[in-house]
Design a protein around this nucleic acid. Structure first.
Lengths: 71, 71
DNA sequence: GGTAAATTGTCCCGAACGGTAATATTGGTT
DNA sequence: AACCAATATTACCGTTCGGGACAATTTACC
């Protein structure tokens, strides 16, 4: 079951949730994704100016799949 | 039917496709989404450093729904 | 309450973004 | 294929801010 993502907050929530489910700290997850801890913290908090590429990298790392379709 | 998005290129492609289907020029779409034409052009071309918030705004404008789920 | 984890401040470099204008690309027509 | 018009890309400039490292502070959890 999927979660609908409309805003960066939505995305951040899903990522945080999934990271915790994977028993990873921000530090570890960030290291694995090759990004800074600060970025991950801000991403999870829904900062809208986060870069897409890095966000997608985190999602990939966490085994999240993103689907897009017409509404 | 959904498209899986793994990279910013994937996202850009879907957005461009959908914008064209909506018969919008970048200029018009950008104006409607409240962003610059440059941003949209780069987003569609897959620039990984595009800001999430703006990208989501464009997606919303184009009637795209984003679903996220575990792989 | 003590410890691990997360947020946030500071410093700083690099780059994103907007507007505009020039250039390039694309698409339709004959 | 050549042409033209519409659309898209990009260079330039200025302003603003992202995000890295590290440290300090706050929050969460046992």
């Amino acid at each position: 079951m999927g979660t609908t993502v409309r805003t960066s907050e939505d995305l951040g929530k899903v990522i945080r949730q999934r990271r915790k489910a994977a028993k990873l700290t921000q530090k570890k997850a960030a290291a694995l994704a090759g990004i800074g801890v600060r970025f991950l913290s801000e991403l999870e908090r829904g900062k809208p100016t986060s870069q897409i590429g890095k966000a997608l990298k985190v999602a990939q790392l966490l085994g999240l799949e993103i689907q897009i379709h017409e509404r």
